[in-house]
Design a protein around this nucleic acid. Sequence first.
DNA 1: GCGCTAGTTGATCAAGCGATCAACTATTGA
DNA 2: TCAATAGTTGATCGCTTGATCAACTAGCGC
Lengths: 214, 214
Amino acid sequence: MPSTDRRRLPAAERRAQIAGAARAVALRDGLAAVTLRGVAAEAAVAPALVAHYSPSMEALVAETFAGIVAAELDEVRYLAGGDAPDALDALLRTLLGGGREDVTAVWVEAWALGRRNAELAAAVRDQMDAWHVALVELLARGAADGSLTVADPDAVAWHVLGMIDGLNAQALVRWRQDDARVALAARAVEAMVGLPRGAVAAPERATVDAGETP
Amino acid sequence: MPSTDRRRLPAAERRAQIAGAARAVALRDGLAAVTLRGVAAEAAVAPALVAHYSPSMEALVAETFAGIVAAELDEVRYLAGGDAPDALDALLRTLLGGGREDVTAVWVEAWALGRRNAELAAAVRDQMDAWHVALVELLARGAADGSLTVADPDAVAWHVLGMIDGLNAQALVRWRQDDARVALAARAVEAMVGLPRGAVAAPERATVDAGETP
DNA sequence: GCGCTAGTTGATCAAGCGATCAACTATTGA
DNA sequence: TCAATAGTTGATCGCTTGATCAACTAGCGC
């Protein structure tokens, strides 16, 4: 997109292009690389134009984060459409199966940068809440049709999300991929939603098994 | 420490004072605030002196992180000295009980900054390994005396640590303290080490209970 | 074909960062 | 007491960041 971009675009289009460039930078180089000059270079545009189209860089960073994470939630929501145990299975396999390191890095950086960027912190809270609502709905669906037994869906949802985030953040730093991640997470989730062992991620599909429970 | 610090100290002492100032800044304002000028101000010293005593700021940040986290590990190691189930109980209560937000923030920032600071990234891996070794030893102790049943101690240890980190990182952003955190984590851990429900954190001591498992 | 609107840019500012180095001086050993 | 040692500092450089603004001009409506 170097040559043809000399054209000048209608405001809405340019705005969208810059948002796209910011997202690309965030996923490739991290949220901290979403700078005036970084995004401008990605969009092949003068830095001042990026500033022109967003009230502040803090806002652009927050908006970029929200866009990336909301898209991920939509995707997962689509994959986890079946009945509750299958949906939990799809959720864990998708989020812990690897290949999402870019999004995980965005999450981790958002937590860190959020301490100094109030708008980003608000966006992080919003997105966490959105994920939480989605998972609570999943649990409620399971509780309604009797496939799950959950005393405190709110707390269980927070816990499952925290577990996933922590494991993914860990994978960001560790070198080797751990095949047992999905299986172990499945055992933990089963214990929290009153499902028998293997109901979420069947042991024969998982690579490593946890200890025996007689 | 403004007036008396006009004195000049022997190298070792000054070095220790600067390390202490760096640690204080990291715990109060975050790892990202550990800058030449930030640490110098905290130690009431010229910025050049901080540079004089450390090869680079990247190194000082990495060293500060390692110091904080290693101290936490020592503390927890001391608290978790009993038999395995009790040790797990102490571990979860200590790390998830709240009041450690400063250290959690340091962890999260280290993950994020580690992507751009190779020395810090190495320190993060080292400390994660140290925590992992400590937890694997705890699990091995339990397996040896028959109080735990763990097929893959390595994987279970990574999982428990990831869960703790994720829940703590979450607590960093969420406003209210969730009373169910310890109890739910205990259920998850019990499921992974072959312990009956309530063996790690007794339900009557915990605030919220997870679903029933018949 | 022309002019006005609106998209775009280069130049520039202040602030904060890490790093370097010559110069200053408190302290100590002879 | 005095000089050598070693701890300390101020000044300064180059770099990156976000932000602002006057000036330029492409493209649309008439």
